[in-house]
């Protein structure tokens, strides 16, 4: 029970940290908005192609804003070696990992929700809000995957002298299955592709999440030793 309690303490510390410092979530939201504008110029989005382009645009933004935010939250731990206050406490490495995964997950979900709202507003695409119920499973599964890998890898990259800059190089190749699953599911929902279900994509994302959750629980302890 103390395992979960410790994880929640760490998560609530991160929420407080975000509330005080406003260092990651606000930057994530700002980047999302900026990327939407850039995509608008780059892709010439209109009524006819928007539902085809939406999945790709949104998931690319989710991935990049996520990298930014998760890099920040792990830098906050490395700064002044603040994370040692967790390491030298009864909280286990596993609860440390879980706590960070949950706070990253929360920030990602907030960022994604706002991005979808921005998208609907900027491109007059209310339909995406209407199909949100169908999109939620793949969004959740994909975001969990992002958070699992992002938490692990942001701790990897922030020890190296390259810092957060290294994160996308490690993170993006590994989350390819999540990106494929997320984009495909959203594509199937928005474009009502005949004969294609989102089921198999959900399955692959579930497999990814379970695999990396158990693996990270085993491996995270090696990242907080010196």
């Amino acid at each position: 029970m103390s395992f979960l309690a410790n994880a929640f303490s760490i998560t609530s510390k991160d929420i407080r940290l975000e509330f005080r410092g406003k260092e990651s979530l606000s930057l994530m939201l700002f980047l999302s908005l900026l990327l939407l504008v850039i995509f608008n110029f780059a892709l010439d989005i209109d009524r006819d192609n928007i539902s085809l382009l939406a999945p790709g645009i949104l998931w690319v933004i989710f991935a990049f804003s996520g990298i930014l935010g998760m890099g920040r939250t792990s830098m906050a731990e490395r700064d002044e070696e603040a994370y040692l206050s967790i390491v030298f406490s009864p909280a286990s490495a596993e609860s440390f990992y879980l706590g960070k995964v949950l706070s990253n997950l929360l920030f990602l979900i907030i960022m994604e929700s706002f991005t979808i709202i921005f998208f609907a507003v900027l491109f007059d695409f209310e339909r995406i809000i209407g199909s949100l119920l169908e999109l939620v499973p793949s969004l959740i599964l994909g975001t969990v995957g992002f958070s699992l890998i992002g938490t692990l890898f942001s701790f990897l990259s922030t020890t190296s002298k390259y810092g957060e800059v290294l994160l996308p190089f490690l993170y993006l190749p590994v989350v390819v299955p999540i990106l494929l699953g997320g984009v495909s599911s959203m594509d199937i929902v928005l474009n009502e592709t005949v004969g294609e279900g989102t089921g198999k994509w959900h399955q692959i994302m579930i497999a990814f999440d379970i695999l990396y959750f158990s693996l990270s629980l085993l491996l995270f302890k090696y990242l907080i030793e010196e």
Partner: peptide
Amino acid sequence: GHKNSLYNSL
């Protein structure tokens, strides 16, 4: 440690 292990924003 050498460093103080404190969260600067808290």
